[in-house]
């Protein structure tokens, strides 16, 4: 395979019988999206590096005489690949994966909904542990923290069947800045957090921190620690944010005509 090809070289691929030309090394998932072909995902987020953990995005790939199942989110498109997203083998593998995820995270309503969507009425495999688990170990929260948030406030622990996502020593995540990225990306509702009484609490990581008030409308809009975290990372000409997103939008709206909702909740948890 010509691995020295220029990065921006275009290659042709076939997805579900339709041909498309994309830049070499485009993720198969993104190439499919260009054709409006939806592949189910759980551990994928456009803002984060692919990880290939949940296996839900499985597709069938053919090159020459070889055909194999693999994950689309971390499959770079190269010359001569043809991809099928809904062959019987794909659907069977995806279904089995979801049944296993259901056993892993039996308490996750999100997983249950996905299962029902796929026509799986009830779990086939015994629930793991006490049946209360919601985490599928997809690693989205860990990547979000690493790549968007504080950087390594939380992480994986142990291994094999004992693997978990946790704060260091299961205690307070001392580096947490309360940005809530982990909660926002978690696909299964495992991570808990709430804004209450001027504080943001990330219950799952045992952290709690003070919120900053918008200089314009007074609404509490971000943890002080998050703003402090951003300060040294902003270019010199960008002042540290002191105004909530809604007021910033309202200001921008004056120039356009869009309505804004000052004080709109930024993080929300429906469960507690």
């Amino acid at each position: 395979m010509s691995d020295h090809a220029p990065a921006n070289r275009k290659v042709k691929t076939v997805i579900d019988g339709r041909e498309i030309e994309v830049a070499r090394d485009t993720w198969a998932l993104d190439a499919a999206a260009k054709l409006k072909i939806r592949i189910p995902t759980l551990c994928h987020h456009a803002a984060l590096t692919p990880y290939g953990a949940c296996r839900l995005c499985v597709v069938e790939v053919t090159k020459g005489k070889s055909t194999w199942l693999t994950t689309a989110c971390d499959l770079p498109i190269r010359e001569g690949l043809s991809i099928c997203t809904n062959s019987p083998a794909v659907l069977a593998a995806r279904r089995m994966t979801l049944e296993l995820l259901w056993a892993q995270a039996p308490a996750s309503e999100e997983i249950q909904a996905l299962a029902r969507e796929m026509g799986i009425a009830k779990p086939r495999f015994a629930a793991r542990g006490d049946g209360e688990n919601r985490c599928i170990l997809c690693g989205l929260c860990v990547r979000a923290c690493e790549q968007l948030g504080a950087g390594g406030a939380i992480g994986f622990t142990r291994r094999g069947v004992e693997r978990t996502v946790d704060s260091p020593f299961g205690g307070q995540a001392t580096l947490c800045i309360g940005c809530g990225s982990c909660l926002a990306v978690c696909p299964t509702g495992h991570i808990r957090g709430i804004d209450r009484a001027g504080q943001r609490r990330m219950s799952t990581w045992h952290t709690e921190m003070e919120m900053a008030a918008c200089e314009s409308c007074g609404a509490l809009f971000a943890p002080l620690r998050q703003l402090e975290h951003l300060r040294p990372r902003l270019a010199e000409h960008i002042p540290i944010v002191k105004v909530c997103p809604a007021c910033r939008r309202a200001k921008a709206a004056k120039e356009t005509t869009l309505p804004a909702r000052p004080g709109a909740a930024l993080i929300r948890n429906t469960r507690k």
């Binding site: 390594g152 622990t157 260091p168 020593f169």
Partner: peptide, 10 residues
Amino acid sequence: TPSHVYRVAT
């Protein structure tokens, strides 16, 4: 990070 050391130690 503490979580890195904890991850390796566990």
